[in-house]
């Protein structure tokens, strides 16, 4: 059975299911209790699961992630909420030097199944630190899985699989898409979600944690996008289609690991690739994809891989953010460029 849910509500429901399934799952962060988070993603969870399992923490991100690591040592599965992308940095040390490395350091003996939820991305007219896309910084750190859903359906599955993962997962939520609606299969259960007993993660065939999805089939050019830019990519595919160009859109879903196989299969057919993300292109996810795809299917490429993304500037003021963000025109421009070779 499917229900039409917003992205925010789909994550909320996924959290609820995970908490019902496993008493060790906790939610913690700033304002996640009675307020339900500033985006209401944790709405009503404290009311239903109590203050021990849904914790309004003191105002300290390093504290949130650091104590989540301790809770994981004690057998819990904390899901931390960082209020906005730009406020993850007080926790950067705990995430990169501790969370990412506990399993490695322990020789595989200690798992730290912590999920860190981060509303990210721009386009909401916000002030500084509320519109950033820092995913590459975390994907660059070995030991962390990094995922980002673009639809309510994927968000519902991904959040439950992320919680089931024995690895730490950075779960980036495209905040500008929180209110987008989509059909969600709310009957999905443990077995259809592929959830294995605690510590074993997710059945590979069912896992979205490492798998991109091909949203539209096309022959002329591939657009790879994730999170907030997927909708833009789909619009670009439609508009280009009206001009007789056949565009394939791939939603990466996972940033670490990258599903390079799916991209290579696509580009082997289309010969052209455009990568779109809001984060700066310089040393970003698109740069890695361009290199990896070039290594794997150099002889299939008809054009250099095009990157569309943010600039090498801090996220600009809201008045001009639309000029910074990759929009339909810029994606179409890149498609044109790719096709001009």
């Amino acid at each position: 059975m499917t229900e039409r849910l917003t992205l925010a509500k789909a994550i909320n429901l996924g959290l609820r299911r995970a908490m019902e399934r496993d008493p060790k799952v906790m939610v913690m962060g700033e304002d996640v209790g009675p307020l339900g988070g500033v985006f209401r993603v944790t709405d009503a969870l404290q009311k239903d699961f109590g203050e021990d399992r849904v914790v309004d923490t003191p105002l300290a991100e390093s504290g949130i992630v650091g104590t989540a690591i301790g809770l994981a040592f004690a057998g819990y599965r904390p899901v931390c909420e960082i209020q906005f992308d730009g406020f993850i940095f007080p926790a950067f040390d705990q995430i990169t030097t501790q969370l990412a490395k506990v399993h490695y350091r322990s020789g595989g003996r200690v798992q730290v199944p912590v999920v860190i939820r981060v509303p990210y991305g721009g386009g909401i007219g916000a002030v500084e630190h509320h519109s950033e896309s820092p995913e590459a910084l975390f994907a660059h750190t070995a030991g962390l899985r990094v995922v980002t859903p673009s639809t309510p359906a994927d968000a519902f599955v991904l959040i439950q699989q992320a919680i089931a993962s024995p690895d730490p997962v950075l779960f980036f939520e495209p905040k500008a898409r929180y209110w987008d609606k989509g059909d969600v299969d709310v009957t999905a259960d443990e077995s259809s979600l592929g959830l294995l007993p605690a510590g074993e993660g997710v059945r590979p065939e069912a896992s979205l944690l490492e798998r991109a999805s091909v949203l539209t089939r096309g022959d002329d050019v591939t657009i790879a996008a994730y999170g907030p830019t997927v909708r833009t990519a789909l619009t670009a595919a439609r508009v280009a289609g009206e001009e007789g160009r056949s565009v394939e859109v791939v939603d990466l879903r996972a940033i670490s690991p990258l599903d390079i196989d799916t991209l290579v299969a696509s580009v082997t057919r289309t010969g052209r690739l455009v990568v779109v993300h809001e984060a700066p292109t310089f040393l970003g996810v698109g740069a890695e994809i361009a290199a990896a795809v070039t290594e794997r299917c150099f002889y299939s490429l008809e054009a250099p891989v095009q990157r569309v993304g943010g600039f090498h500037t801090p996220y600009p003021v809201a008045n001009i953010e639309e000029e910074y963000l990759p929009d339909l025109d810029r994606v179409l421009d890149a498609v044109d460029t790719a096709l001009s070779y």
């Binding site: 310089f282 600039f311 090498h312 500037t313 801090p314 600009p316 003021v317 008045n319 001009i320 000029e323 910074y324």
Partner: peptide, 26 residues
């Protein structure tokens, strides 16, 4: 609104090749 290109101003105190390349592209 400020001019869009102003987003490239003041990132660094002295000219920076990456910023300038992107400004030129923009």
């Amino acid at each position: 609104h400020p001019p869009a290109e102003s987003m490239f101003d003041h990132v660094y105190a002295t000219p920076h090749a990456q910023v300038e390349r992107e400004r030129a592209w923009f």
